[in-house]
Design a protein around this nucleic acid. Structure first.
Length: 668
DNA sequence: GCACTTTATGTTTTT
DNA sequence: CATAAAGTGC
């Protein structure tokens, strides 16, 4: 992008418009982040708002981080203290934490991730059928996102299947309450409920956050839109930014319909379209436009650009995924060498996380530095979750899942049988596992040999809780790790190499917690609550020069000079899950897949490579594949595209590769 | 009863 | 290939 201070006409209009609510329809690469950051600056400049009265809500942590950075850049000379830039979920957590008492929760409630929720549901329906549990989990989540209450779900159940799903929904909600826990969806739903039930709480937040900016509105679900509507209230001082062509979260309950509703709900809404693309060269943009033209439009947009045509697109058919990965790696090496570019100028985008594996292998082989974004987050690693279970339990003794996980990892002689007895006793007394473990009555149920490790465990947790509010988070965490004996248990259970990796992860985690705790002056208990939501992104220095491997979903909002789109095949993109069901649903799913492809294409600034595999390993057997229908929708005939079919670039690049692998300047 | 070893099994995307 | 359920040794 050019000087960030310069705005084009519609951008300026969007920034300056304050008289009524504002909806910005921002095409890909049209500078929407620039509009949001400049609008924040403008709000502060006019004197109408202080930074602490402004909230900018994003959808992902990555977007929030990006927004924070851009704001910090632009607002460096302005008072930005108290400016809220975070995800919907982070705001929900802040509200729920501050108002916990009003919501019938203790302030130290736990936040469950998807795995915890899965385990609870599995428990409730007492089945080993993974598909069933997943289906139930997703149904409950969709109900919550669509603001369907337990009662509504029960009464609207038409089949016995639905009725039993609704029953699980009810007991799931009850279980969470017993654990004093909320899931991700509750972080949106519960604050909204609270606002409806207790208007005075709502007024407090409405007067605190007087101007709201929302990014990616097309990805909000009914529940988020509801929370948003409550928050902005009748004053409706807000700017929403979105693009219906980039809606890729319908599977999670998001509905583009919110873009239409927002016009109905706010008749004075000013709609501004950003149609000038600053990102991509002509051919890339033409392909993107041709593709998305196959989707029905909510808003008519015509994206245009002042850039020249740029490089031809390259479309390659590869024999299989190994060769595809290899080819991409080699091409990046060569391309980077020819253009004198940085590794960080390249991104490889794909549909599913599992595709990263082959790519990683190829990149390691070719000695190309890379970072994988999306996929399993740092906090989802088992060893980190083990540590977090201890922290969660120290913060919230009602958190039974944390209790079970902590008391069994590392192994301390408490197993399934002991827990079974403890669980029955707790159920009969109507208390949490931890509380049951502290009661003297337990002694009658467990022989002292089984009881003693349990008692020692509870004593330790109590001691840590007492100290957690008084001592610095970092040191206490170090001591926790030592006292619990994580390191030994990790080295015990794994071979030296993986153990070292796992232990390093824990050390990184501890260092991150320490640094974050000091920066925000929080104690260990307060830190614990943010962990479920925060991502390590903020501590990772964006300065390392590495190729980015990313899912298409995780790539949204980012841009790269050179993009490789891999696995563009029928069954993968569009994904095979879209097949089989009824026709209207099918059409919508294909449209969403098309938008996903559109998002991928529009990440590219200067060059775009698209690959597909003729054969792909599925399970143990190879399965032959067809090129994606989207390839034929790119209007290739309209521009001089280079279409390279089944050409292995290895031979051409052999010379370059040898050159690249030569040792560099002699080291001292 | 507990922990460790084997064996079936199965894959979208994220807060 | 990584995870999670069933099976085996202590």
């Amino acid at each position: 992008m050019t000087q960030s201070s310069v705005l084009n006409v519609p951008q300026r209009e969007a920034v300056l418009h304050l008289e009524s609510p504002c909806l910005v329809l921002a095409g890909a690469g049209s500078g929407k982040t620039r509009v949001i950051t400049h609008k924040i600056a403008h709000l502060i400049d006019t004197g109408a708002y202080t930074a602490s009265q402004i909230a900018a809500l994003t959808f992902t942590n990555k977007a929030a981080k990006e927004m924070q950075e851009r704001c910090a850049q632009l607002l460096s000379t302005k008072p930005t203290r108290g400016l809220t830039v975070c995800t919907f979920h982070a705001l929900g957590m802040a509200i729920l934490r501050a108002e916990a008492v009003h919501a019938g929760l203790k302030p130290r409630f736990s936040i469950l991730d998807a795995d915890d929720a899965y385990a609870i549901i599995q428990d409730l329906c007492a089945t080993t059928d993974r598909g069933l549990v997943r289906a139930l989990q997703s149904q409950i989540s969709l109900w919550k996102n669509a603001r369907v209450s337990v009662a509504q779900a029960e009464s609207s159940a038409a089949t016995e299947e639905e009725a039993s799903a609704a029953r699980i929904y009810r007991s799931y909600a009850a279980t969470l309450l017993a654990y004093q826990s909320v899931d991700f969806d509750d972080l949106i739903g519960r604050p909204a409920e609270l606002f409806v039930e207790q208007p005075e709480v709502l007024y407090r937040w409405q007067s605190r956050l007087r101007y709201v900016l929302v990014d990616e509105v097309q990805d909000t679900n009914a529940s988020q839109y509801h929370l948003f509507r409550l928050l902005v209230g009748p004053r409706a001082a807000f700017t929403a930014v979105g693009d219906d062509d980039q809606a890729i979260y319908a599977w999670r309950g998001a509905t583009v319909d919110n873009l239409r509703r927002i016009q109905e709900d706010y008749p004075t809404l000013r709609v501004v379209k950003l149609e000038q693309n600053y990102r991509s060269s002509g051919r890339i943009l033409a392909a993107a436009n041709a593709l998305i033209a196959h989707n029905p439009k909510l808003f008519e947009k015509k994206l245009w650009s002042e850039h020249g045509p740029g490089d031809p697109l390259v479309i390659q058919a590869m024999p299989n995924e190994e060769q595809e990965a290899e080819s991409v790696a080699i091409q990046i090496s060569a391309h980077r060498f020819e253009r004198q570019a940085r590794f960080a100028d390249y991104a490889v985008l794909y549909r599913g996380n599992h595709q990263a594996r082959v790519l990683e292998q190829a990149f390691r082989k070719e000695k190309i530095p890379y970072v994988v974004s999306g996929g399993q987050s740092f906090f989802e690693r088992v060893e980190i979750k083990d540590v977090c279970a201890w922290l969660r339990l120290i913060a919230n003794q009602d958190d039974d899942p944390a209790f079970v996980r902590a008391i069994t990892t590392p192994k301390r002689g408490v197993g399934a049988a002991t827990l079974e007895t403890l669980g029955q006793y707790a159920a009969s007394r109507g208390v949490s596992l931890f509380e049951a473990a502290c009661e003297s009555g337990l002694g009658l149920k467990l022989e002292s040999r089984r009881l003693e490790p349990v008692l020692e465990f509870t004593r330790f947790i109590n001691r840590m809780e007492w100290r957690a509010t008084r001592e610095p988070a970092g040191e206490l965490l170090d001591e926790l790790l030592r006292a619990v004996g994580f390191e030994a248990s990790i080295y015990d259970g794994h071979d030296a190499r993986t153990a070292q990796g796992k232990w390093q992860n824990i050390l990184d985690f501890a260092a991150w917690m320490k640094q974050k705790a000091e920066a925000d002056s929080k104690n260990l208990l307060e830190m614990t609550q943010s962990v479920a939501l925060l991502s390590m992104l903020e501590s990772r220095d964006g300065e390392t020069d590495a190729v980015r491997l990313s899912t298409l979903h995780a790539a949204k909002g980012l841009e790269f000079p050179h993009v490789f789109l891999v696995g563009v095949e029928e069954g993968l993109l569009p994904h095979g899950g879209a097949a089989g069901d009824d026709a209207p649903v099918l059409a919508e799913r294909i449209e969403e897949e098309r938008r996903l492809m559109y998002v991928g294409i529009t990440r590219a600034q200067r060059s775009l490579h698209i690959c597909w595999c003729q054969k792909r390993k599925r399970g143990r057997e190879f399965e032959s594949r067809e090129p994606s229908r989207f390839l034929s929708e790119l209007a290739l005939e309209k521009a001089p595209f280079a279409v390279a079919e089944q050409v292995s670039p290895q031979a051409r690049l052999a010379g370059l590769k040898a050159l690249l692998n030569k040792p560099r300047a002699p080291s001292p």
